[in-house]
Write a protein that binds this DNA or RNA. Structure first.
Lengths: 136, 136
DNA sequence: TTACTTGCAAAGGCTTTGCATCGCC
DNA sequence: GGCGATGCAAAGCCTTTGCAAGTAA
């Protein structure tokens, strides 16, 4: 929690209860969470917060690079703590999302810069299929 | 247009005016289009169609594998004619979407199967950055 | 104090659904 | 004729916005 305070201060953000609890949640979960999950978590933690505020905090955290915004074809966004860049394996049956590192597509990015003169800033790579459980 | 009729019939779909015009549009555009673009196009073509119908046609086309559904962080879906699998370069400034083939990540998929025992069925790979125009 | 943050209510954008009617095969 | 497709209206989600009140620094 002390650590969270520091993180927020470093980002030049005022330390509020909601922000601290949400940051806690992201650090604990280490997975892409949706806005409604956060609202529910806040309720559990007796830190009820309006969803408008949650969305505003999410936006702020994104701007400060504390979290990343992403989507998995669900028609809504998910957010994950930044820092450990990786990709995701999305199970099409149960919705479980696993992490996967080492994508190693720098080569591809160079090729794109060369062939298309497109300046790549970031990429998004998701694999869809069946997780171990759901293959049975 | 004759060709479209055949495509629809092969998919066991009734040949309606809206379906033909929408299929035309996908074939002509060869790019990911959003639902509202389709509604506007249909108006232009004097084939005004309710958006509910457009969404239902899009869903049907997806189920039949005629088009693919995808997203680019816009908070809405886009759809593209199936067949020529490729990835996209999304300009963060002007929103332009270019194609890019040859992603060559079969190796990565094998690695995922081995390491994670996850059965990869498809993947989604998008690059975000600046297109040639917007780099100036 | 003062600028930033929040709550509440409302609206906005995209997408889906129910139901009666229409039209392709 | 029958089943599937469409139009219309409404609702459902997710997300954003305006404004007044609250609060961290």
């Amino acid at each position: 929690m002390k650590n969270n305070r520091q993180t927020l201060q470093n980002a030049q953000l005022k330390v509020t209860h909601a922000r601290q609890v949400i940051l806690d949640f992201f650090i604990a979960e280490k997975r892409p969470v949706a806005a409604d999950e956060i609202v529910i978590y806040l309720e559990k933690k007796k830190c009820e917060t309006d969803k408008a505020t949650v969305y505003r905090i999410l936006e702020t955290f994104c701007e400060k690079g504390i979290i990343n915004k992403m989507e998995f074809g669900e028609g809504k966004f998910r957010y994950e703590i930044a820092g450990t860049e990786h990709h995701h394996l999305v199970c099409e049956k149960c919705g479980r999302i696993e992490d996967f590192s080492d994508c190693n597509i720098e080569e591809l990015e160079k090729e794109i810069a060369r062939k298309k003169k497109f300046l790549v800033k970031r990429h998004s790579l998701e694999f869809y299929g069946l997780c171990t459980q759901c293959q049975r």
